[in-house]
Design a protein around this nucleic acid. Structure first.
Length: 321
DNA sequence: CACTTGACCTGTCCGC
DNA sequence: TGCGGACAGGTCAAGT
């Protein structure tokens, strides 16, 4: 679920917390979460100091003062939570936590759907003190006693330690498209890139990371609603003015979401374990059955490009001029 | 080659 | 109450 605004929020948070800290230990319990942990990590990670935290698309980059960087993808349910000295559970508690299910419920996030949607304000629930839990798969220890937890309920996400020079050469970075909020990215470029897949439905194209980076299901649905485009419309059939408008709306939505700390549906939290409040501003996402904020028609949920898709059937006509 | 579907995972929710 | 199955959706691999 972390899309561009969520990963950006984590980046902003970690940028205030991590630089200057030196890695003093690393633990992991799931090989796929940290594929090169066994051979390289202790040798190349321990003792290194964090220099800078950056983001590209939905990927986080933690640059070290050695020739290595940590490259992290949270995929659907990944979390990266920083906990200051003394506030986290001890590492020896992991076994207990994992063995005793009851312990994991102590921190369980409330079902955020209602709370976020109906406006409890910016939620401040924190995981501090309850980590690690059974979704914790990697722990970094720092020299000042603080820790960084990589949690992932579904184990789709991963952490990699790569030589800095190799980072731009991994398949994902070679193929990924431009940043939608990049200073030099224009509506014209956006339109031309979408037209590379002019025979596909526009939602599939927005989700295609090689066309534009960082857009996932939430912001695809929200931006298509804002621009009044049906998600199944073929790119070639969408008028130029609407594609230009889609660019503007997408940028506005991404910026608003970053400002609100991202979207928390179930799992996402920021670097300090706090949830984001963007979903309370969402117009269609996870709002099926509720009235469209623009015209009052009932929002429908369908499936497009293999994804759950939310539309206003009145605002977003399939055969719109 | 363009495009779609399946696999990776596990917690949650729905119907029986 | 319990259980099976559908569902969630980012990305890569495999299939059409």
């Amino acid at each position: 679920m972390p899309e561009l605004p969520e990963v950006e929020t984590i980046k902003i948070g970690l940028s205030k917390l991590l630089p200057g800290k030196r890695v003093s230990g690393v633990w992991h319990d799931w090989a796929k979460s940290f594929p090169n942990a066994e051979e390289d990590v202790r040798q190349f990670l321990i003792g290194a100091k964090i220099v800078v935290v950056a983001r590209r698309a939905k990927v986080l980059l933690i640059e070290l003062d050695s020739k290595y960087s940590l490259v992290i993808h949270l995929k659907m349910t990944g979390q990266l939570v920083f906990v200051a000295k003394g506030l986290a559970g001890s590492r020896s508690k992991i076994a207990d936590n994992k063995a005793q299910k009851s312990l994991t419920t102590t921190y369980e996030l409330p079902s955020t759907k209602d709370e976020v949607r109906f406006g409890a304000g910016h939620p401040t629930d924190s995981l501090v003190g309850n980590l690690p839990d059974k979704s914790t798969h990697v722990i970094f220890d720092f020299d000042d006693g603080s820790k960084l937890f990589f949690n992932d309920q579904r184990k789709f996400g991963w952490v990699r330690l790569l030589p800095k020079a190799e980072v731009p050469n991994i398949d994902f970075f070679k193929k990924v498209g431009p940043e939608p909020l990049g200073a030099d990215f224009t509506a014209e470029q956006f339109r031309q890139r979408l037209l590379r897949r002019k025979n596909s439905n526009i939602k599939a194209v927005l989700l295609d990371q090689t066309i534009v980076a960082g857009v996932g299901n939430i912001y695809a649905d929200e931006s298509l609603w804002a621009a009044k485009i049906h998600p199944e419309a073929l790119v070639r059939d969408v008028p130029k003015t609407k594609l230009n408008n889609l660019f503007i709306e997408l940028q506005k939505i991404l910026l608003l979401s970053i400002q609100k700390g991202g979207s928390t549906d179930k799992n996402y939290v920021d670097a300090e374990g706090k949830k984001g409040s963007y979903l309370s501003f969402a117009s269609v996402f996870r709002r099926e059955g509720l009235p469209c904020p623009r015209c009052g028609h009932t929002i429908m949920k369908t499936k497009v490009a293999g994804r759950g898709t939310h539309i206003c059937p009145n605002c977003q006509r399939k055969s719109s001029k």
